[in-house]
Design a protein around this nucleic acid. Structure first.
Lengths: 340, 340
DNA sequence: GTGAAAGCGCTAACAC
DNA sequence: GTGTTAGCGCTTTCAC
């Protein structure tokens, strides 16, 4: 009952047409200053606020982006989301949020349709690339007719992607271990279904190869990103690669598990073994010892994504040109602490 | 260009009126089976999907909730958000998300207005209560005319609140230390501007009082939730309360800092000092030693909030009754690990 | 059972 | 500069 005031009420009370009110609303120039003032005053008096829903319907533009995320209970995705919210706020866009119940979304179509029916101006796909959960891109994106931007995935023609350079980050981490004089550098990876895990492993392999070391199956073990898995993967790895004196771990959480099991078996870090993680989560500074890690700025990732999407949307709108897909890469940086 | 098909196209092709199509869309019973079938087939052929925006405008109901969060870069809020997304999905609601740039939001009014203009059916305020950042409730909520549900705040008449029972959780933690035979139990709190921090401190005081111990200023120190602050607060506390043999820390992250500084100064946990945290974040199981902590199910918090809000919205809609405010409390549970 | 008319609140296109 | 006329795509009376 509070806000039943519509553009019509304002028009009537101000003694003008609804059009004129609309013009004032949209800051058009073709209104006399005198009229504009009068209308604005009436708006205040009536505490009038336009209906965004009606505007969306009429303009065919909502100033809303759809955001798809997954695994919010982990720290990474929410950092990215935070970057998205802040940049969207800056640029005047709202966000319609969906979290995938499982990474392997098989009902992408209804989701995209839902966004479309809400007339979002663009979509940010911030869920990780795992297995073939991107299979639908070629089928769906073209006739969706809404710009979609993907986060964290392999370069692909036809779609714009913003991602941390996982391969290069992993290379930096491994090179650091090499420079520290480590000769037997192992790797604990995330699940191989994850693109990020594969990239990081590849970075480790590449760096070692460039250092003249050939990697073998004995030199790496598989984890699932969790501290617990990091721990068991490490024990497994140590058993089959006993000479290991350095390890690049696929993420900080698994590195936490590694550090803990090192403590238990009485090995000193970094004296006996150097450890380097990936992600640069805030806690890593307080592990014992503080963890050397590759920091990826996920907040920035989200911000860049929104900025790019906005730019594409507005270009499409004003110049009616469809921007060609880009592959935007963000470089992570090595943070050296006491674990190496 | 893909989805220019409207209800009108369907009506025309099916040889019925737009209303009939609408009836089929809304599963009304007053349509003959034969007509329904025909219309449905045409919908499929044209791959027609109704516009949610047009429906919102027409029905004056959007099936969207507004969500306000803050501090997504920390792990707590995003867990809650995850609970919110999953339950909302189950109940058929979408989410319009806003993250406060700072905890002390002074521009609440435009935010609420924005939600209102988007015709959200309800609002979940999931940002923490800090200082007087709730001052606006009495002024704004009544004439907003949209149900608003608050998370994590002090009971207050007129508004529905869902919260973890921080006081009781803190009591449990402290009582546990007492039962372990600790005689000198200190506390490191979060910032006193935070309601949660005050509640947890109060729980510590209450438990000690019930155990016959009077708390003094010497027995607690102030942190800011971060590991770093936990560390310095602990050192400060140890200096003025040297006989301390147990400490209840306001959250797990600060407890991490405490554990690290204990390692540095060479004190054994729990032999010399027992440590208990609060939150039950996943990592706490992998601190050294694994942390005893009070687990609060933030996912559930979000789910309960959505369920309650939905219930209120639908009751208001069907029976046209405004549900009276509730204060819903979720009990956290003590998880005992090696740090105590 | 089905259709016609009116309306949700606003904007775009064209008049004057 | 300002008003008129049509929509945007759907639902809600109320006829028949």
């Amino acid at each position: 009952m509070a806000d039943k005031t519509t553009i019509y009420d304002v028009a009537e009370k101000a003694g003008v047409s609804r059009q004129t009110v609309s013009r004032v609303l949209n800051n058009r120039q073709d209104v006399s200053d005198e009229t504009r003032e009068r209308v604005k005053n009436v708006m205040d008096e009536l505490s009038y606020h336009p209906s965004a829903v009606a505007q969306s319907l009429s303009r065919q533009k909502s100033y809303i982006f759809g955001v798809v995320t997954a695994g919010l209970r982990f720290i990474g995705p929410s950092r990215t989301l935070s970057g998205i919210t802040s940049k969207a706020e800056e640029l005047g866009y709202g966000l319609l949020l969906k979290e995938l119940a499982s990474y392997n979304s098989n009902n992408v179509k209804p989701l995209l349709q839902w966004f479309k029916s809400h007339q979002v101006d663009g979509i940010i796909w911030a869920a990780p690339e795992i297995e073939d959960n991107r299979y639908w891109i070629k089928d769906m994106i073209p006739d969706l007719d809404i710009p979609v931007l993907f986060l964290t995935m392999e370069e692909q023609s036809q779609v714009t992607i913003v991602t941390t350079d996982n391969l290069n980050g992993a290379k930096k981490a491994t090179e650091h271990l090499v420079q520290q004089g480590r000769k037997h550098i192992g790797h604990i990876s995330g699940p191989m279904e994850w693109w990020e895990a594969r990239q990081r492993k590849l970075g480790w392999e590449t760096a070692l190869k460039e250092a003249g070391i050939e990697t073998t199956e004995q030199m790496w073990a598989l984890g699932n990103w969790s501290p617990k898995s990091g721990r068991s993967a490490f024990l497994e790895l140590l058993a089959k690669f006993p000479e290991m004196d350095g390890v690049f771990v696929g993420n900080d959480q698994m590195a936490l598990g590694v550090l803990e099991s090192l403590l238990e078996i009485g090995k000193k870090v970094p004296r006996d073994l150097s450890v380097v993680g990936f992600d640069g989560i805030a806690d890593s500074e307080f592990y014992c010892p503080p963890l050397t890690t590759v920091y990826q700025n996920q907040d920035e990732l989200g911000r860049v994504a929104v900025a790019e999407l906005t730019s594409q949307v507005e270009q499409k709108l004003t110049k009616n040109i469809v921007v060609e897909p880009k592959y935007i890469t963000i470089q992570p940086e090595l943070i050296i602490r006491r674990s190496s």
